[in-house]
């Protein structure tokens, strides 16, 4: 149980770091390149990370309770 709990907290932290890095990359791209398509791809990546790790979309088709 403790391992599961630690893993869950770790996942949250990893997700936050990924989002922070992507946000910084997004900002740099906008300032120096202004590539619209690239910015859109990064936004999609960020959304996918949040939906997968924070919103647990996989639970929708899982047989589980709390």
């Amino acid at each position: 149980m403790n391992d599961k709990k630690a893993a869950a907290y770790r996942l949250g932290l990893i997700t936050l770091v990924i989002l922070a890095v992507l946000t910084i990359v997004e900002f740099i791209i906008a300032v120096y390149m202004g590539a619209l398509v690239l910015l859109f791809i990064i936004a999609l990546l960020k959304a996918a990370v949040i939906i997968q790790n924070f919103m647990h979309i996989a639970r929708l088709w899982q047989e589980e309770s709390h």
């Binding site: 791209i29 906008a30 619209l36 910015l39 936004a43 959304a47 949040i50 939906i51 924070f54 919103m55």
Partner: peptide
């Protein structure tokens, strides 16, 4: 929590659209 993250996801798209793109 899911709702709160959803609000975050919306901002993930709004932020570049308003502040960075163009």
């Amino acid at each position: 929590a899911i709702y709160w993250h959803y609000v975050d996801v919306i901002w993930v798209f709004f932020y570049p659209a308003l502040y960075l793109m163009g």
